Simulated assay, not measured.
Amino acid sequence: MSNDQQLIEELQNESTKRNAFGTLVSTYQERLYWHIRKIVLNHDDSDDILQNTFVKAWKGIHNFRAESGIYTWLYRIATNESLSFLEQRKRKSMGGMDEIKDYLLENLVTDTYLDGDEIQMKLQKAIALLPTKQRLVFNMKYFDEMKYQDMEKILETSEGALKASYHHAVKKIEEYLKSET
Results as ranks from 00 to 15, higher is better:
residue 83 L to V: 09
residue 83 L to Q: 09
residue 84 S to G: 11
residue 84 S to V: 10
residue 84 S to F: 11
residue 84 S to T: 14
residue 84 S to P: 00
residue 84 S to Y: 15
residue 84 S to R: 15
residue 85 F to S: 06
residue 85 F to L: 07
residue 85 F to E: 06
residue 85 F to Y: 14
residue 85 F to R: 12
residue 85 F to Q: 06
residue 85 F to T: 09
residue 87 E to G: 02
residue 87 E to Y: 08
residue 87 E to R: 13
residue 87 E to M: 08
residue 88 Q to W: 01
residue 89 R to V: 01
residue 89 R to L: 14
residue 90 K to F: 02
residue 91 R to K: 14
residue 91 R to T: 07
residue 91 R to L: 06
residue 91 R to E: 00
residue 91 R to H: 01
residue 92 K to I: 02
residue 92 K to V: 04
residue 93 S to D: 15
residue 93 S to N: 11
residue 94 M to V: 07
residue 94 M to G: 02
residue 94 M to D: 09
residue 94 M to H: 11
residue 95 G to E: 13
residue 95 G to C: 12
residue 95 G to K: 15
residue 95 G to A: 14
residue 96 G to A: 07
residue 96 G to T: 08
residue 96 G to W: 06
residue 97 M to K: 08
residue 97 M to D: 11
residue 97 M to A: 09
residue 98 D to P: 03
residue 98 D to L: 06
residue 98 D to T: 12
residue 98 D to H: 09
residue 99 E to Y: 15
residue 99 E to N: 14
residue 99 E to L: 08
residue 99 E to G: 05
residue 99 E to I: 08
residue 99 E to P: 00
residue 100 I to T: 13
residue 100 I to A: 05
residue 101 K to Q: 09
residue 101 K to N: 05
residue 102 D to P: 00
residue 102 D to G: 04
residue 102 D to S: 10
residue 102 D to K: 15
residue 102 D to Y: 05
residue 102 D to W: 06
residue 103 Y to D: 10
residue 103 Y to N: 12
residue 103 Y to F: 14
residue 103 Y to L: 15
residue 103 Y to V: 02
residue 103 Y to H: 13
residue 104 L to K: 10
residue 105 L to D: 05
residue 105 L to I: 14
residue 105 L to F: 05
residue 105 L to T: 11
residue 105 L to E: 07
residue 106 E to I: 14
residue 106 E to M: 12
residue 106 E to D: 13
residue 106 E to V: 10
residue 107 N to D: 01
residue 107 N to S: 11
residue 107 N to P: 01
residue 107 N to M: 10
residue 107 N to A: 05
residue 108 L to N: 08
residue 108 L to F: 03
residue 108 L to Y: 00
residue 108 L to T: 07
residue 108 L to R: 02
residue 108 L to P: 00
residue 110 T to F: 13
residue 110 T to Y: 06
residue 110 T to P: 01
residue 110 T to R: 15
residue 110 T to N: 09
residue 110 T to I: 07
residue 111 D to S: 08
residue 112 T to G: 14
residue 112 T to C: 09
residue 113 Y to L: 03
residue 113 Y to G: 02
residue 113 Y to Q: 03
residue 114 L to Y: 02
residue 114 L to H: 05
residue 114 L to C: 01
residue 114 L to R: 05
residue 115 D to K: 15
residue 115 D to N: 12
residue 115 D to P: 03
residue 116 G to H: 04
residue 116 G to A: 00
residue 117 D to R: 04
residue 117 D to I: 05
residue 117 D to E: 10
residue 118 E to Q: 09
residue 118 E to L: 09
residue 118 E to I: 06
residue 118 E to G: 01
residue 119 I to L: 12
residue 119 I to Y: 04
residue 119 I to G: 04
residue 119 I to A: 05
residue 119 I to P: 00
residue 119 I to F: 03
residue 120 Q to A: 07
residue 120 Q to P: 02
residue 120 Q to R: 05
residue 120 Q to H: 04
